[in-house]
Deep mutational scan, measured.
Amino acid sequence: MALNTPQITPTKKITVRAIGEELPRGDYQRCPQCDMLFSLPEINSHQSAYCPRCQAKIRDGRDWSLTRLAAMAFTMLLLMPFAWGEPLLHIWLLGIRIDANVMQGIWQMTKQGDAITGSMVFFCVIGAPLILVTSIAYLWFGNRLGMNLRPVLLMLERLKEWVMLDIYLVGIGVASIKVQDYAHIQAGVGLFSFVALVILTTVTLSHLNVEELWERFYPQRPATRRDEKLRVCLGCHFTGYPDQRGRCPRCHIPLRLRRRHSLQKCWAALLASIVLLLPANLLPISIIYLNGGRQEDTILSGIMSLASSNIAVAGIVFIASILVPFTKVIVMFTLLLSIHFKCQQGLRTRILLLRMVTWIGRWSMLDLFVISLTMSLINRDQILAFTMGPAAFYFGAAVILTILAVEWLDSRLLWDAHESGNARFDD
């Protein structure tokens, strides 16, 4: 018995066209964080690309023209004298008006014999932002004059995390709450300039795509075929072959399989920071003279006294001054041990922890910024005066060393310790 099946006739004509040209192939790229070699397709503007294995951002879609970056830099340069030299806060102490600005706080630190601690604050609040705007201006002028731009481009990517104007702005709020127990506070004209400078700096850093600047100024022929001998440069993120001198053909720094002496430098910085954190938390970090009496505060006791007036601000200072430094030390110690013992479990967790400490590390400088600003506000000789204690130097040095330890660690070593050939990683 035959089955009668109805015929289905399409209502619209289906047209099949042959592909007349070869589909576009992607360029081969190595991930600078996990060293995976993959094919990167062509990316349009405002599109980002991520590593298929570790999800690290390979290409950032946010990109401004150099002219727009230069305009932002010149605007920031105009704001800087007002943000640093004009009063941020006014207080009335014992019937006398006192003005506080950024430069005055750094000068008070240096004047009291601790120039190293003052230079830490100076670099993060004044030096690094000033280098940022002058570097962008150098790129703008240098591109037109045919100057060598490689050193500036190499420095810009590392400079971003040292620009800490946003953290200093939080420190202004913390210092205001600490001082309000002794005097009446009012915002100064410099505060508005400083807030504007923070906003412009944040926007500029978020749109400063150094890798795209490398592509514009020093374009290189990408690798179009897969080759395990391809290496990625950690300076400019170019994937290719080393030249005859073993250097990256684009930025001219040595092109090595792994960062040289990464573990040794990381261990040295980490152990030194552990040693410095002990006096930083045991010795007094601030000293207040009130009517001839002397009151010393460690980091913890200062947080407890701050909690009596504002528990939320005390929580912020606790996280930045105690929780973050010790968390960074514990995480980095764990990561280094996992590399030495070739741990194969929990790779995803370790990668996330490394990215976390990379982002939060700079916030530990908050305590030094609060001390710097408070020193310029309260300084009335023996009637009422505020000065920093010996722990300030140890704390600042420990924070900087932990930042350097994270920067010096080559994250690809975590993958080397893991089993080879993993296309995915999980716990």
Rank of each mutant, 00 (worst) to 15 (best):
D381P: 06
V189C: 09
I172H: 04
R59H: 10
L234R: 06
E157W: 14
S308W: 11
Y394Q: 05
L88I: 06
S273E: 03
M103K: 07
A83S: 07
L77D: 09
S364C: 04
A314R: 14
M365Y: 03
A73I: 13
D427R: 13
A49L: 13
L205H: 13
A272F: 01
L278A: 11
R221V: 06
S65F: 05
A187H: 08
S65T: 06
S193F: 01
H207C: 15
T334I: 10
L169I: 10
M164N: 04
M147S: 05
T11A: 12
E211T: 10
I199Y: 09
D416I: 11
R62H: 05
A196E: 07
K12Y: 10
L306E: 00
H90V: 09
L409P: 03
T374Y: 08
A312L: 10
C251I: 00
F326P: 04
L368D: 01
P129N: 06
C54G: 02
Q104N: 06
G315A: 13
E157C: 14
S411P: 11
G85V: 08
D367E: 01
I303H: 01
A405F: 11
L149M: 05
V370P: 01
L88E: 02
S273R: 00
N44K: 15
Y168F: 14
C233E: 00
A269L: 15
T5W: 10
I126Y: 04
V163T: 03
T327R: 01
L290D: 00
D227Y: 13
L352E: 08
W64T: 15
L323R: 00
M304A: 05
I126H: 03
D114F: 13
L159V: 06
Q104V: 12
A314P: 15
D99T: 10
A56Q: 08
L278F: 12
E211Q: 12
M155P: 02
L270T: 11
D181T: 03
A187I: 09
D416G: 12
I403L: 13
G105N: 02
L323S: 12
L368E: 08
R53P: 00
V317G: 02
S45N: 12
C251V: 00
F393N: 04
L213Q: 06
P24W: 12
G85E: 11
I287Y: 04
I330W: 12
L77W: 07
D426V: 12
V102A: 11
I339E: 10
M147Q: 03
G26Y: 12
L149C: 15
S376L: 10
C248Y: 00
S206H: 15
A280H: 01
L263H: 06
I378K: 00
L78K: 01
L154F: 05
V102L: 14
L384I: 04
Q104W: 03
I287E: 08
G246A: 05
R150C: 04
L323P: 01
T201H: 06
Y168A: 14
R68M: 06
I383M: 06
S301N: 14
